[in-house]
């Protein structure tokens, strides 16, 4: 799977970092950084899915990797 973030719409709430600190971080300006752009294990995908769901500005996407 491919995990991406839209830094133009991120409002720095940090919900993603709070939900899945292994997959996300924030830079000094509070903007999201994706640490694990290709979650693979079931557990990684589950947590990334939750983070996508809780992001208040809907700035995160998790999609199938291109074959």
């Amino acid at each position: 799977m491919q995990l991406t973030a839209n830094r133009a719409t991120c409002i720095g709430a940090g919900q993603c970092v709070f939900t899945d600190p292994d997959a996300f971080d924030q830079d000094d300006d509070g903007l999201v950084l994706v640490l694990r752009p290709e979650p693979a294990a079931t557990e990684e995908i589950a947590r990334a899915t939750e983070a996508v769901h809780v992001c208040p500005s809907r700035s995160l996407r998790l999609v199938e990797s291109a074959p």
Binding site: I11, G12, A13, G14, V17, P21, Q26, D28, D29
Partner: peptide, 15 residues
């Protein structure tokens, strides 16, 4: 709102 929020949000990061 976006302009002001983006300017201040770095103060409130999880870290």
């Amino acid at each position: 709102h976006t302009q002001q929020r983006v300017r201040v949000m770095g103060e409130f990061t999880v870290k």
